[in-house]
């Protein structure tokens, strides 16, 4: 539940009922008052007072769908850059083998790790678990919807604008979109075979990516519905004019703000 919608800054006292406890984004000062430690909007869950940040890196939560880039191939695991303070870990046992068989990973598999995921490969995954301090996370791609990404374009937005939604894999005007909770969004053409993406689809990919960038600039919620709505508003605009001040104004007027629950 949100408390009164006032932006709090580091050092500001969070107004909350008696007997509340300091949670994420707050601390208790020497006078026993609950004080914010980052810029954001305060919220209260049972007795826990939190500040939902408006800036900062992605903080992981279990079962989030995210997009990451391989930073390191290590012993039986990959280190994945997901835009959070710490690199995430993807264990060799947490991926689907290309052959699809279920067995204990052997040394043979370790030798082939670079064939599954190499440096700088993009992948979609799910957060399986967090370490005890809640900062570093383990990922898994044990489903055919997760895995290596191709035929598309990556857009990075503020992670605070991408909320939890029913479907993170959606189709918008003929192209597919994965909304990573870490603010990385993949716009692509889902196709199993190696094909060249046709020109009209590429243009559509760029259009969707530009709309997402506009929503990020306008600080509006980024989800399938808001992207579709803005796509409708900017139907007539040419692709090379879509990232303009004019269309940013249209987005600011038409899309809903962060208050709209997703």
């Amino acid at each position: 539940m949100e408390l009164d919608r006032v932006l709090v800054m580091p050092g500001d006292e969070v107004r909350c009922p008696q007997g509340s406890m300091p949670g994420f984004g707050t601390y208790e000062n020497s006078e026993g008052k609950i004080v914010a430690n980052q810029i954001g909007y305060p919220a209260i869950y049972n007795k826990l007072v939190c500040v939902n940040p408006v800036r900062g890196r992605y903080i992981g939560e279990t079962s989030n769908v995210i997009i990451g880039r391989i930073a390191q191939v290590a012993n039986k695991r990959w280190k994945v850059n997901v835009g959070s303070p710490q690199e995430a870990v993807l264990h060799l046992s947490a991926i689907d083998l290309p052959t699809g068989e279920h067995r204990i990973r052997s040394e043979e598999d370790q030798l082939h790790m670079r064939e599954y995921f190499n440096y700088n490969d993009l992948l979609s995954a799910e957060v399986q678990s967090l370490t005890q301090d809640g900062k570093s996370m383990a990922l898994q791609t044990r489903s055919n919807k997760f895995g290596k990404l191709k035929n598309g374009m990556l857009v990075k937005v503020s992670p605070m604008l991408v909320g939890r939604m029913r479907h993170h894999f959606v189709q918008i005007s003929g192209v597919d979109v994965i909304f990573g909770r870490n603010g990385w969004i993949w716009v692509y053409l889902a196709h199993n075979a190696e094909v060249e993406v046709p020109l009209n689809v590429r243009q559509e990919i760029v259009r969707v990516a530009c709309v997402i960038k506009l929503l990020n600039l306008a600080k509006k919620v980024i989800c399938a519905e808001s992207v579709k709505e803005v796509m409708d508003c900017l139907k007539e605009v040419l692709i090379d004019e879509i990232l303009s001040k004019n269309s940013l104004g249209i987005v600011k007027e038409n899309a809903w703000g962060i208050e709209g629950e997703v």
Partner: peptide
């Protein structure tokens, strides 16, 4: 630091 969202005691 505020722009980066780093937790701070105060300004």
């Amino acid at each position: 630091l505020i722009d980066a969202g780093v937790p701070m005691k105060d300004f």
